[in-house]
Amino acid sequence: MATIQTLKPGDQLPTIECPPVTRLDLIKYAGASGDYNPIHTIDDEARKAGLPGIIAHGMWSMGQLSRIVSPYLHEGFVKSYSVRFHAMVFLGDQLSLKAQLQEIQNDEYLFNVEAVKQTGEVAVKGTLIFKVI
């Protein structure tokens, strides 16, 4: 079983490759989150808002990215998680989820995290603190 306590600053966690975003992914997220803003599910509404097509909820991408530390959940929990939304994520986009350990303070592991599109554009970027308990 993976253990966070052998990691050293600078280490990368194994990248997670997400499958291409589908409409059903976003319909499911809308239902699960209660965010029914139609620019995430209905083409006409997205176009009316000046978008080329529907876009993923920023929180869908942020939720996906949170999985990067899941292999360590038997050791602790996500104490803090903070991101900024950069590029929009469209249907068919594929996110690569990445994390690099920045520093360790006592029982807290600070990671730089990002979700990068297949084009190389950063969709979501931020920091996550995993606390060992």
Binding site: Y29, G31, A32, S33, W60, G63, S66, R67
Partner: peptide, 10 residues
């Protein structure tokens, strides 16, 4: 439902 919607299987 939420875990499923973000691809979380832990």
């Amino acid at each position: 439902k939420f875990a499923e919607a973000i691809g979380e299987t832990h």
